[in-house]
């Protein structure tokens, strides 16, 4: 109904009164989270093409487990239900992306419960968790199902066969081969250097569900950068550190390692763009972010070279997570012109 000037005075207006600012950006937690979900979908499609429908099934089971756990624990803890914000969906996807496609289908259920209930909700919910939920979920699965989690690889070319051949030797990951047999064995198996680079970049290698197509992962990461949802500091510092240190220490002598292969194997790209950048469990400010990225990259190389597992990204990030409060405390933004003589 059109209002006449005369009626505006009598009108009982439901005026809202609030503290400034009165305009807000269009961004929201939901929008950011669902954008991340969208960026994670292309690698999944690739994975289905590579490893078969199992990839999709495992991811769906993982996501369902995370969302259901979130719902039940928020109900139980009498918190607002936030399953619509997409954050549990991301956890579920990332959790699935770090497991081999050949594991039994029920494996991620347990991982999801640990990721969401123990790592996130028991710590106070989104915003209060110290550790990256998906990575704790993965670490738990590795500890509980060590054999499946480290050997249930599927050879890409077998995606039509069902059930997939679960075979630790014939479909061992490139990282496993490098660690136990050296680089020459890798070339022997996968062709010359450039073919290896190419295959690794576009993702026709055995590996975890969502970590193989580096091309699509980088595309997704670049989109998040473009949107301003993540900053370059952590991905760049982490990837560069892995590359540099692997080049220096990863070969038979100093400076004999292959930095490209080091970066394009295991979950380095997935971890650098999608896990180490998790807001809650990474530093807030640029300086801290760079140190966090360098630390995660260095630990990744250290674990790969000296540790028991061929893959180190998961533990490297988890080891850096508890340092975040200290990094945030030490490396703060530079104040405009703070008063002389101290922080006051």
């Amino acid at each position: 109904m059109e209002e006449t000037p005369e009626t505006i005075l009598e009108r009982k207006m439901p005026l809202s009164v609030s503290v400034s600012p009165h305009v807000r950006s269009k961004e929201s937690v939901e929008k950011i989270m669902w954008t991340v979900v969208v960026c994670l979908i292309p690698p999944l499609i690739w994975s289905v093409y590579q490893f078969g429908i199992r990839s999709l099934l495992l991811t769906l089971i993982s996501v369902l487990s995370c969302v259901a756990t979130e719902y039940v624990s928020q109900k139980g803890l009498k918190r607002p239900i936030t399953i619509k914000d997409g954050s549990a969906v991301i956890t579920g996807m990332l959790l699935a992306y770090t497991i081999p496609p050949g594991v039994p289908l029920w494996t991620p259920i347990l991982g999801g419960v640990v990721a969401i209930y123990i790592t996130k909700q028991l710590m106070g919910g989104l915003g209060y968790n110290i550790f990256n939920p998906a990575l704790i979920g993965r670490a738990f699965m590795v500890a509980t199902f060590p054999v499946a989690m480290t050997s249930a690889w599927v050879r890409p070319e077998h995606y039509f066969t069902s059930p997939p051949p679960v075979d630790a030797i014939s479909s061992a990951t490139p990282l496993y081969i490098i660690k136990h047999y050296g680089l020459p064995a890798l070339f022997e198996r996968y062709g010359d250097l450039w073919k290896v680079y190419f295959d690794f970049f576009f993702g026709s290698m055995p590996g975890c569900i969502g970590e193989t197509s580096h091309f699509l992962l980088i595309l997704g990461g670049l989109y998040l950068l473009y949107k301003g949802y993540i900053s370059w500091h952590i991905p760049v510092s982490m990837i560069v550190t892995v590359g540099l240190l692997s080049w220096i220490l990863g070969g038979d002598g100093l400076f004999q390692g292959d930095p490209i292969i080091a970066v394009l194997t295991g979950g380095v790209i997935l971890g650098a763009f999608f896990m180490a950048t998790d807001y809650v469990t990474s530093p807030n400010w640029a300086t801290g972010k760079i140190i966090f990225g360098v630390g995660a990259g260095a630990l990744t190389v250290l674990i790969r070279l000296k540790g028991g597992y061929p893959e180190g990204v998961c533990y490297a990030i988890l080891l850096m997570n508890p340092l975040v409060p200290a990094l945030d405390n030490w490396f703060r933004p530079k104040r405009f012109a703070p008063p002389k003589g101290g922080v006051k």
Binding site: S16, S18, H22, V23, R24, S28, V29, I32, P80, T82, G124, G125, L126, G127, Y128, S231, Y279, V280, P283, N284, W285
Partner: peptide
């Protein structure tokens, strides 16, 4: 023009 969505916990996005 205004945005009255309820607030939630800080997600530490920086």
């Amino acid at each position: 023009e205004i945005d009255e969505r309820p607030h939630r916990a800080c997600i530490r996005c920086g």
